[in-house]
Amino acid sequence: MESKCKICRRAGEKLFLKGDRCFTPKCAVVRKPYPPGVHGSTLRRRRGASEYGSQLKEKQKLRNIYHLRENQFRTYVDKAMGMRGADASSKLLEALSLRLDNVVFEAGFVPSRSIARQVVGHGHARVNGKKTSVPSYALRVGDVISLSDAFLQSSTMQTTDEAFKKFNAPSWISLDRDAKTATIVSLPDTVHQTSFNIKLIIEYYART
């Protein structure tokens, strides 16, 4: 599997796959602002990508950010496209946003989605008080997310504890900083998630 830094360099922009490191001068996109590979630094600037190339690049960016395999990502897209009367772009982002591992990250419990995935997979996540170890678990409005006592006392949480106390979660997540819980208070506001051109992704799968 390609390293997180190479994925960002290939995309030509920061995808923030390594948490805090992405905000430092150590970020690979800052140190090596060119594609990976032997000839990466000598590649000439290419002409504008084709329509298909743009769709593929956007799809790969979103898939990599959520750490999904192609078949997993395709399942989300197919479900969003199959909803009658609904905007497929909004439904796709909504479903991805409400994944348990994503909410653990968005709530500020951990510095990256990859760590959030591990935390959930190792059985440290609780949904409404019940242990849930499936990263893709789909949360709903009203669900309360917390973490195990073992994780809260771990070095990982101790490192991020001060940051968590000051963390500003998205408007659809309400944090109780004292109890260290996160509550889904509304559906995600996908309209303002403008870092991706989701329509290109839908168009990519519509033609395959």
Rank of each mutant, 00 (worst) to 15 (best):
residue 130 K to D: 04
residue 77 V to K: 00
residue 20 D to S: 12
residue 129 G to A: 08
residue 191 V to R: 14
residue 202 I to M: 11
residue 145 I to L: 09
residue 70 E to A: 07
residue 184 I to V: 12
residue 78 D to R: 14
residue 40 G to C: 05
residue 27 C to Q: 03
residue 95 A to E: 10
residue 28 A to P: 05
residue 180 K to M: 11
residue 93 L to D: 00
residue 116 A to C: 06
residue 13 E to G: 08
residue 73 F to Y: 01
residue 16 F to Q: 08
residue 118 Q to A: 10
residue 185 V to G: 03
residue 201 I to C: 07
residue 43 L to K: 11
residue 29 V to W: 06
residue 47 R to K: 15
residue 45 R to C: 07
residue 100 L to C: 08
residue 100 L to Q: 04
residue 105 F to V: 09
residue 172 W to V: 05
residue 39 H to R: 15
residue 43 L to P: 00
residue 60 Q to D: 12
residue 194 T to Y: 04
residue 157 M to Y: 15
residue 20 D to E: 15
residue 21 R to E: 14
residue 15 L to V: 07
residue 167 F to C: 07
residue 111 P to K: 11
residue 65 I to E: 15
residue 111 P to H: 09
residue 136 S to V: 06
residue 81 M to C: 13
residue 127 V to T: 05
residue 119 V to Y: 04
residue 22 C to W: 02
residue 98 L to M: 14
residue 75 T to W: 01
residue 23 F to E: 15
residue 184 I to A: 01
residue 161 D to T: 05
residue 198 I to L: 09
residue 122 H to D: 07
residue 94 E to N: 00
residue 157 M to S: 10
residue 194 T to V: 13
residue 154 S to T: 04
residue 33 P to R: 02
residue 173 I to S: 03
residue 113 R to M: 05
residue 60 Q to T: 11
residue 60 Q to L: 14
residue 146 S to P: 02
residue 189 D to Y: 07
residue 88 A to M: 09
residue 134 V to Q: 07
residue 176 D to Q: 03
residue 127 V to E: 00
residue 99 R to K: 08
residue 10 R to W: 03
residue 14 K to I: 13
residue 124 H to Q: 10
residue 104 V to N: 03
residue 161 D to P: 00
residue 160 T to F: 12
residue 202 I to N: 01
residue 24 T to E: 11
residue 145 I to T: 08
residue 15 L to Q: 06
residue 179 A to Q: 10
residue 91 K to S: 08
residue 54 S to C: 06
residue 117 R to I: 10
residue 52 Y to I: 13
residue 205 Y to T: 07
residue 164 F to T: 10
residue 84 R to H: 10
residue 116 A to D: 03
residue 121 G to S: 13
residue 200 L to N: 12
residue 75 T to P: 00
residue 57 K to H: 10
residue 93 L to W: 01
residue 53 G to P: 08
residue 3 S to H: 12
residue 201 I to D: 02
residue 73 F to P: 00
residue 126 R to H: 12
residue 166 K to P: 03
residue 168 N to W: 10
